[in-house]
Nucleic acid binder design. Structure first.
Lengths: 207, 186
DNA sequence: AGGTTACTTTACAAAGC
DNA sequence: GCTTTAAAAAGTAACCT
């Protein structure tokens, strides 16, 4: 019947408009975050899957688009923290976190936690640190991971502390305040993780 | 043999019941010392018992939710106190209102540190939620018994969602077995 | 630097927006 | 989905001394 046909048309039409708006948002946020083209493509693919699986009803386009961008960046190995994501999104951090968990669960994305090492290049560059510092930071994180220090700790906090520790070890100037600013991690947390990283380093030959 | 199951401690029991009688919460708020009632915020009246320590949410329909008790016996004792208080106010209360335990929250200690990254993969990413940027605990949904377990790097865990006291014991035995089978327990 | 307080997560019921 | 209640786990954060 005509009504049913109209309904289908209306549904398809609204989904197309929905998709257009979402892809525009993904592009805008990805640009602001400096994410490469492949991440935008992945985010778009995830958004289409969410739309096809009817995960949108009850949720905002912007919230789902933001979550897809967050997921895609992590899957590509170039994670952005929830704080960084929320800064360029229209929805607040708590909604992004909730929506991301929902989308990841419903679509079985099976995204593993970000590896702290993946934040090192960006944080170190923003602080103007050398390649040697970056290498040191990565090594500190590798050793700490083997010692089982990572469980339950924020990858962002671990990365921030590693970058801070590496700068000190290579005699490059940085302050906890500067690292705190670029990573959006409190100085207290940087201090705490910093001590754990150095402790794991000292125990290298032990156990 | 002392094992993780012996470390289980019930932390909170949530239960519901009803007195089979509609209530005037405005009047009850005036007659019950210590009662909190802000209908603009929440439709239930909050009443706390001291011994055992618990909090009750009393609704206009006469239905009551009791939470905060440390055992099922404490739930019955706390609700018994509330039923008696209502009877003192000449409010008819059923003789023995049925009390349904809705959720039991327990904590336990596996006695070994846990590598949560390895555990997330070993237990299967499909049943696991581990987002250390948002929360330090790994969330594991177990089918039988149907409970949710929060596992921490320290080996301390939280079991919630169970309705029977032995759900936590069964769950702890089961999770220890699964973690051990993965070679990730101590 | 330390200490306190408070927020994050899980489950669950209740009545109503 | 939200509102309120309670309790644990460990990490993070804001605030004060």
């Amino acid at each position: 019947r005509l009504r049913k046909w109209n309904e289908r048309f209306r549904t398809r039409d609204s989904k197309e408009r929905n998709l257009k708006q979402a892809l525009g948002e993904i592009d805008r946020m990805a640009s602001a975050l400096g994410l490469p083209e492949n991440v935008r493509e992945t985010a778009s693919v995830i958004y289409r899957r969410a739309l096809d699986d009817d995960l949108l009803p009850g949720r905002s386009i912007e919230g789902v688009a933001t979550s897809c961008t967050y997921a895609a960046a992590r899957m590509a190995g170039v994670p952005r923290s929830l704080d960084e994501i929320a800064e360029v999104s229209r929805v607040e951090k708590s909604e992004v976190a909730r929506t991301y968990r929902y989308i990841a669960r419903e679509l079985s994305l099976e995204v593993k936690p970000a590896d702290p090492e993946q934040y090192v290049p960006r944080f170190a560059s923003e602080l103007g640190l050398s390649d040697e510092s970056k290498m040191r930071a990565r090594q500190l994180l590798k050793n700490a991971k083997e010692k089982g220090v990572h469980s339950g700790k924020s990858p962002v906090g671990l990365a921030a502390a590693a970058v801070y520790a590496a700068a000190l070890l290579t005699n490059e100037k940085t302050t906890q305040a500067a690292v705190s600013d670029v990573a959006d991690i409190s100085e207290v947390t940087i201090r705490n993780r910093y001590h754990e990283l150095l402790e794991a380093e000292e125990n290298l030959g032990l156990v | 043999m002392s094992g993780p199951a012996d470390s289980i401690e019930i932390q909170n029991v949530v239960a519901s019941t009803g007195i089979g009688q509609e209530l005037d919460l405005e009047a009850l708020a005036d007659d019950l010392p210590g009662a909190d009632f802000n209908p603009d915020n929440f439709p239930g009246l909050v009443y706390r018992t001291q011994d055992p320590k618990a909090a009750a949410l009393i609704f206009r329909s006469g239905k009551i939710v009791c939470t905060g008790a440390k055992s099922i016996d404490d739930v019955h004792d706390a609700l018994g106190i509330i039923f008696d208080k209502l009877r003192e106010l000449k409010i008819p209360v059923d003789d023995e209102p049925e009390i349904t335990v809705q959720n039991i929250v327990s904590s336990a200690d596996l006695g070994h540190n846990l590598n949560l990254n390895a555990l997330a993969i070993g237990l299967g990413l499909e049943d696991v939620e581990y987002e250390p940027e948002q929360f330090p605990g790994l969330v594991y949904r177990m089918d039988e018994p149907k409970v949710v377990i929060l596992l921490f790097g320290s080996g301390k865990i939280v079991i919630t969602g169970g309705k029977r006291t032995d759900d936590a014991e069964t769950a702890v035995e089961e999770i220890v077995e699964r973690i051990d089978a993965l070679g990730l327990l101590g």
